[in-house]
């Protein structure tokens, strides 16, 4: 039996769907667009970089809800 894999760069389509939704639902919750979110990330990064040495590629910015802490 053969089937075509829909992986793009090792990511399954369901993982891609989940990642897209995570970003979308978050941006809708804080009522700002995905574009604004990206802008906010880069601005926060710039401000922090003014005071601390930052490796741009290693920075991860997440918005956390104190009432709903991440599972990790």
């Amino acid at each position: 039996m053969f089937h075509f894999r829909s992986d793009t760069k090792g990511q399954t389509s369901s993982q891609l769907a989940k990642d897209r939704l995570k970003l979308l639902l978050l941006s809708e919750k804080v009522s700002c667009t995905a574009e604004d979110m990206a802008l906010m990330r880069s601005e926060v990064q710039r401000v922090v970089a003014k005071y601390v040495d930052l490796h741009r590629k290693k920075v991860e910015i997440r918005i956390l809800d104190p009432e709903d802490p991440p599972e990790e």
């Binding site: 399954t12 369901s14 599972e71």
Partner: peptide
């Protein structure tokens, strides 16, 4: 096949 989100994914979202 990894082409549909599972129930855990949906619940997490």
């Amino acid at each position: 096949k990894g082409d549909m989100m599972n129930v855990e994914d949906v619940l997490e979202l």
